[in-house]
Amino acid sequence: MLTPLVVDFPFEWNYIRSIIYVSLYVSLTAVALSTLFSLPIALFVGFKDFRGKTLVTSIINTGMGFPSVVVGLVVLFAVSNQGPLGSFDLVFTTEAMIMSQFVLAAPVITGVSLAAVSSVEQNVRDAAYAMGGTKLDVAFVTIKEARYGIATAVLAGFGRAISEVGSVLIVGGNIASSDGTSVTRTITTAIQLEARQGRFETAMLLGAVLVVLVLLVNAIVVRLGSDDGGYR
């Protein structure tokens, strides 16, 4: 008797693919927005002396370890009918998920970037100014000098966003459409659901995808950390 050449895996590939797509779309968008938001704050807090600087730094550090379910709860309230963003109809949408991941990733990116830009020596910044640089030029030089640290910050933010389950479950609702593709279902929320329903193969496959993604991100972080080159 001939054995079949193609082993029939019990996976709905469209389903899996759409989950990965939603996860990446939500997390990458949230991280991109967080980066745009966090970098100016890191530069400001790093180099300006102002009243309450210690308080701001503490808030950033606290935010780095903020429980994601609480973030989810707050964002859900904000977008619910009674909340300030209620009129935008954002409950159980990817937009709401992006908002909650933004709140989770921003403190991580700000905190790690702050450490990176603070380590740029003042005399290098002075040199940029003395060569005729404007404040903006000095900021760019600082970002360039801290580029590896900032890249690490962005990747750490992505790591936090892609692997968190609490807030996206609350604000996204873990919804799949009737044609069997993900609407607001991410890798993490799908794993939780599939495992609970006893479909361990699917849960394990999604788990493997998530682990590979996180490993990849960490590998890049380690690679960047050991890179000593600037550009020629």
């Binding site: 020596e121 005399n123 290098v124 002075d126 040199a127 940029a128 030089v141 360039k144 000098e145 600037g230 550009y231 020629r232």
Partner: peptide
């Protein structure tokens, strides 16, 4: 101090 940038 020379205070050079991390570049060529």
């Amino acid at each position: 101090e020379a205070s050079l940038f991390d570049a060529s």
